[in-house]
Design a protein around this nucleic acid. Structure first.
Lengths: 193, 193
DNA sequence: TTAATTTGTTAACAAATGTTATTGAATTAG
DNA sequence: CTAATTCAATAACATTTGTTAACAAATTAA
């Protein structure tokens, strides 16, 4: 099997049972692509037609507000998926951007391929459900944190859940993820001691 | 058909096709129940085993933080569903409470009944998917608003999307929904003119 | 009806957070 | 390697938001 799709094979196999025949067919529909650091994989206001699986590198999903200011919504490292699932499901214009923070190699699964997978894979529907539940729970936790935790508490939670992210991402992106200004994050980190 | 389940029949029929035979069986598994104003339908730290459909009245879903302070997450009026879907799906302790803000009459659909519906209704799985997508999109919009809008902008959006809510809910609950203090909301409303 | 409770507003003050600008270090591009 | 750019820290100041308390209006309970 091409090394490009070994990782995603391992990840999907951990969720549902896929036999070799199924995999040979399904993975043949994937596209593998490289993006340079800072390249945009998905533009806001366009319809998101892909799910990206990160082989190597790091992606950032972010919004912009009326003043053009960015809010980092999520960071996606190796072996994880990135998409705007709302736009993907509804075929509505995306509210967010997906950008490479490092040179990044991704497996691209298009909308058509996903729909085909639902039909052709024995457990395709289950896979779709499991992945969508995973995202749903991510969102639940995000909202809960925004409502009930202070910025510094959110920082500590992030530190605990995604320690590797803090080492790889410029701090002002972390600040926008926490929904505070970069200056304020710098202050909070000092006060912490 | 009992008047108790006319509303939910209408709502579900607008999502999927259900014939009379199916409905007779499925609706026979529902429970209908009255809750007094201020009563709790779901306690935090318990496992959410039900989906509630509001016939008459109004529900509030809210979190509490470490200091016991409440954050209203969502208001659920007539003809809409309330649940902690994260807890319901995963069988994990709920992070939130569901409370009646008025005397409220609900149809209760238990976890078992939902699972049964997935099997026995021709379009049961599709119904589950559609409802879960609806919640997912609600969450997307919520997060987007928290990141990109100011409190007064969130207030205006809420006013536009759920005008009836503002008439029926004490203002300090609205404030906690917007994630600001009641005093601050009162100020913002004055400044608005 | 009357008393108790809840609610919304306002004022005064405190705390949290944002903004701008400056600096030097780190990183990147050529 | 050098110049340009990005980045993090800091200070000074402005703005937003929270807190407490007081009061009056509205609602609820007895």
């Amino acid at each position: 099997m091409s090394i490009d799709i070994e990782c995603i094979h391992r990840v999907l196999s951990s969720i549902i049972e896929i036999d070799d025949k199924e995999w040979e067919y399904f993975s043949g529909l994937f596209e593998v692509k490289d993006f340079k650091k800072k390249e945009i994989l998905l533009h806001a206001d366009t319809i998101c037609k892909n799910i990206f699986f990160v082989n190597t590198g790091l992606l950032r999903i972010y919004f912009t507000d009326n003043n053009g200011r960015e809010s980092s919504f999520h960071f996606v490292p190796e072996n994880d998926f990135a998409t705007d699932y709302e736009s993907f499901l509804q075929h509505t214009p995306s509210k967010c951007y997906i950008q490479a923070l490092e040179d990044t190699n991704v497996v691209i699964i298009s909308n058509n391929v996903v729909l085909d997978g639902y039909k052709k894979l024995r457990y395709g529907e289950k896979l779709g459900r499991k992945l969508s539940e995973k995202y749903f729970i991510l969102y639940c936790n995000k909202i809960h944190a925004l409502y009930t935790l202070t910025p510094i508490e959110r920082y500590r939670v992030m530190n605990k859940l995604f320690p590797y992210i803090l080492q790889r991402v410029p701090q002002h992106y972390i600040a926008s993820y926490l929904n505070i200004s970069p200056v304020h994050l710098s202050r909070l980190k000092n006060e912490q001691d």
